[in-house]
């Protein structure tokens, strides 16, 4: 694919490959972002499933700022890691699976909050509907799946970058 070739030849991609600190810094950003997105996501799912009922959902909405910071970190660091070796990642099935699971997780999170929006006002001791609970489980499964697939990339990528 020509787009991939073009990406790999951008100055930015060359910099990621040539710099000795780009790769570790990007991987650190990716780990921090993951902890924010998945951490906030899992805690929200726990609350919806009935844990810590004293917490009104408004508090989990406040975690959005952290989750969005995580999304920004991971999209930017992920994009830079990707363009450095676009062909290799694109042809890797665990990478494809990870991207699919992240998209699924994002959509599931959006659907989950859509369902929750209908159940306002967010108050303490509120019991959420079965629909919301199912969405909470599905979201958590997608995020954990994305982590598993992401870790597998390191074992299925043909050697080259690192």
């Amino acid at each position: 694919m020509e787009v991939l070739l073009w990406l790999e030849n951008t100055p930015l991609a060359h910099w990621v490959l040539a710099s000795s600190w780009a790769n570790p810094v990007l991987l650190c950003m990716h780990a921090i972002g993951m902890s924010l997105v998945v951490g906030c996501g899992l805690m929200t799912s726990l609350r919806i499933l009935g844990f810590a009922r004293f917490m009104p959902l408004t508090f989990f909405r406040e975690l959005f700022a952290f989750a969005w910071t995580g999304v920004c970190l991971n999209v930017s660091s992920g994009a830079l890691l990707f363009i450095a070796d676009a062909h290799k990642y694109m042809g890797n099935w665990t990478f494809q699976l990870k991207i699919a699971l992240i998209l699924a997780g994002s959509i599931a999170t959006w659907v989950m909050w859509r369902i929750l929006a209908a159940e306002q006002p967010y108050v303490a001791e509120q019991q959420l509907s079965t629909r919301a609970r199912v969405a909470a489980i599905v979201t958590a499964v997608f995020w954990i799946g994305a982590i598993i697939a992401g870790r597998m990339i390191a074992y299925t990528l043909t050697p080259g970058l690192e």
């Binding site: 998945v38 951490g39 870790r151």
Partner: peptide
């Protein structure tokens, strides 16, 4: 070893998510 790595990643999300709150 890869399974431990994956668990380590999932564990850190649980740890940091809960500690954040």
């Amino acid at each position: 070893f890869p399974t431990f790595e994956t668990l380590h990643f999932i564990g850190l999300c649980i740890l940091l998510g809960a500690m954040l709150i």
